[in-house]
Nucleic acid binder design. Structure first.
Lengths: 252, 252
DNA sequence: CTTGCGGTTGACGCAGCGTCAGCCAATACC
DNA sequence: GGTATTGGCTGACGCTGCGTCAACCGCAAG
């Protein structure tokens, strides 16, 4: 009774037969012998090795790492410490993700305020015309016409998605501001890059440094914009402008 | 300028061209037209749809879920709430995993005490003989001989792994005890199942109900065992025995 | 003889692309 | 006019850890 078949080992160890065949295939746990039509026959050393494998697997180690440990090529403590660090990284990633998702849910449920970038969408004709005139003076005829025709071509569904996209960016950026991240730091600049790309999509091309800085200036100097942005949080408009200036300096 | 190629869209949106081709392949984002040798040509609606895709992707949603949302088959808020719940589950799983890994590291670094199940390994000959005699009286000749020959055949390396395996189980079970989990509850019984299987491997077969209960009795009644087990934590021996009794009742 | 159990070897599937490989077309340089 | 470069295209493999068929074989019971 010192030898077991695949199914017996599976039952004893609480794994599937397929798993054992897989471990054989990748060389992690080879049976003591292949006899009589290829039948796998496991001995006691294999059972014990399997126990060690399962112990390490329960800790979340990958099979190739487990193999290295069992071959003596890797110190268990070292591998576990590295693994613990990875777990920690992954956990904080999940934490941030969960926070972002929760914020997005609140935002969707709360009904988002109309962002000023949606100038031409859903406004009454007079106000709309006023914005368009001003935009033309600031950025020129071509840009405004492109943006205008863009918005005209949207389905109502797509149009609804625009404020969400801007609010998403505002939420993210404000979270960084509250966390004390500098506006020209890597985290805030990454979000700003998303903002730039979103603007680029609406304008049909990326704004140059001057135009982008001009847009930022609008956020702090024009009360129609400033009020909306400081509604996100007090001081947010200034933070946003600083981030945009830094972005223009570094990338445009 | 109302139409863009793959590379242009990639640059504007900050994704790889390969990604865009993938999204086309799975039908998530199809170009406005395929013209002139299969060249993909994206229009403004596609750019906007891509923005929505990337927004949702940043939240960790899977591509098929994103597709459902964009097709209008799924409410964004519902999907996000479900996703938030999944994130929470995953996060607590990682928490437990990290705790287990940390405990294992402490255990490996602290040098584990010899578990009494390693009767015949590394003891002086006289003590070893004494254990063997007693084990024979308790569980019979056959079982002891099998277990004995098992241990004889092990390499020193494999022998060192045995206490680790037992200590792993003790650590896990004691964590449950300290958390207030009942010895006959599902969590503790899952660990006990591992313990049973480990014993089964060493004995060459699973002990029956009587033998397993007898082993449990040993833990609380025999001072040599009890002392070692209560060294894990005060009262642990009794908890372990209760878990083993419950396991025997339910499964053997 | 059939049925059924338990064993075997492939091979696909999953998630989301990265990364060649091999081929075409237009442009730029000599 | 030849050619090197750029960019786009379509496959197809790779990664992780098996679950899940599919197709086939051998042995024992009914």
């Amino acid at each position: 009774m010192d030898v077991w078949t695949t199914a017996e080992v599976a039952r004893l160890a609480g794994v599937s037969a397929r798993t054992l065949r897989h471990y054989d295939a990748i060389g992690l746990l080879e049976p003591a012998s292949h006899g009589h039509g290829g039948l796998r026959r496991y001995g006691r050393p294999e059972l014990l090795r399997l126990q060690q494998i399962l112990l390490l697997k329960r800790l979340g180690l990958r099979l190739d790492v487990i193999a290295e440990i069992l071959e003596g090529d890797l110190e268990p403590v070292d591998a576990l410490k590295r693994h613990a660090a990875e777990l920690d990284t992954e956990r904080s990633r999940l934490d941030r993700l969960a926070a972002t998702v929760a914020a997005t849910i609140r935002q969707l449920e709360g009904g988002q305020p109309m962002a000023p970038e949606t100038w031409f969408g859903g406004l009454d004709p007079a106000t709309e015309a006023q914005y368009r005139d001003e935009a033309r003076r600031r950025w020129g005829q071509a840009v405004v016409e492109r943006a205008w025709s863009t918005l005209q071509d949207l389905t109502p569904e797509e149009r609804r998605a625009i404020p969400e996209a801007f609010n998403d960016i505002n939420t993210r950026l404000n979270a960084l501001r509250e966390a004390g991240a500098p506006a020209d730091g890597p985290a805030a600049q990454a979000v700003t890059a998303d903002h730039y790309r979103l603007i680029a999509v609406h304008w049909g091309d990326g704004p140059n440094a001057e135009a982008y800085r001009g847009l930022g200036a609008l956020y702090t100097d024009d009360p129609r914009f400033k009020d909306t942005y400081d509604q996100v949080a007090d001081g947010f408009a200034a933070y946003m402008r600083a981030a945009m200036d830094a972005y223009a300096d570094a990338n445009l």
